[in-house]
Design a protein around this nucleic acid. Structure first.
Lengths: 169, 169
DNA sequence: GTCCATGCAAACCTTTTGCACTATA
DNA sequence: TATAGTGCAAAAGGTTTGCATGGAC
């Protein structure tokens, strides 16, 4: 018998979140565990609506306010990362059991998100430190464009900019 | 006599925007020119409120709706770039008479924004193309951290994450 | 028993939209 | 004069907050 969820078990991650809560002197509640469970069970970049509906599917009816408040704790704990891909709302992804450091490729056509690693970023950050005296803490590298399937589907991008933006006279 | 505004003249840029409007069959209005003037006159990353108050300072009383609608046109024309530094609102910067391609360093303490160029980005984009078949169109590279002055002022960053996030048992 | 979380609804904030009026071309 | 823009106020949409109730410890 294969378990329903073939992904790595999420219980250890939820427990880790529980430890964080205890460290902070905060109660470990059913709702907090349920939200964490959903986030840790997915390898996607979930919106708050995604999370809410997945909770419903499992019979949990948790208010949006609680979801937002729990996500805030998850982000603070550093177990979850928050992203804004310019859609007008945020998305959340857990940072465990995968490459913890990665950048994103976002297809502007279908919204699909791919992840990739970039060692060049570290070089850039060191250079920034030396050259500008700026101390990097975190970064955001997102490349927007067309994924392979959308290109194969023949999608083309319109360019409605100025015909010749260089000429300034 | 030094002119009041020692920056490069903005008139040619405003004229360029006028050309774009004409190309699109759209009227060139006083309000559109006034908004463009403010954006082209600044080398900062302006919020809509910044733009509105600078317009007021010059005696122009232009509705927010018009400012938003004009910024939309400026962005479409590619004369202006829109940014979201995670503050809850957008910022705008013109793309003329400076290095047109640059990335941003954002100080999380004082909000100051520095610009830098990165040639590494091009390598990353080519690799992405070859490796994933993803066609890059635009990218966003932002490094958040502490600028030199905030470091010198002794600002330290709290880390309220889990004490040992690696251990998952 | 104390303190904090939850849930609902209202508030918030930026951005968008509807509509009567005005300006451009 | 036809067509599109402007300004105001209302609406929209995601997120946050106030407050009475309920749960964790």
């Amino acid at each position: 018998m294969t378990p329903v969820n073939a992904n790595p078990p999420t219980a250890p991650f939820v427990r880790l979140f529980g430890r964080y809560l205890r460290e902070q002197g905060l109660p470990v509640t059913q709702q907090r565990e349920a939200v964490a469970e959903v986030v840790f069970a997915s390898d996607e970049h979930l919106s708050v609506d995604d999370i809410e509906s997945r909770l419903r599917e499992e019979g949990d009816r948790i208010g949006k306010a609680t979801i937002y408040r729990t996500l805030d704790l998850l982000v603070r704990s550093k177990l979850v990362a928050e992203h804004d891909f310019g859609e007008g709302f945020k998305r959340y992804e857990h940072r465990l059991s995968r490459q913890p450091e990665h950048e994103h490729l976002i297809c502007t056509e279908c919204g699909d998100v791919l992840e990739f690693r970039s060692r060049e970023i570290n070089q850039i950050e060191s250079r920034i430190q030396e050259q500008y005296g700026f101390r990097p803490v975190r970064h955001k590298l997102e490349i927007y464009g067309l994924c392979r399937s959308c290109q194969e589907a023949g999608v083309e991008l319109p360019d409605d900019g100025l015909t010749c933006p260089i000429e300034t006279v």
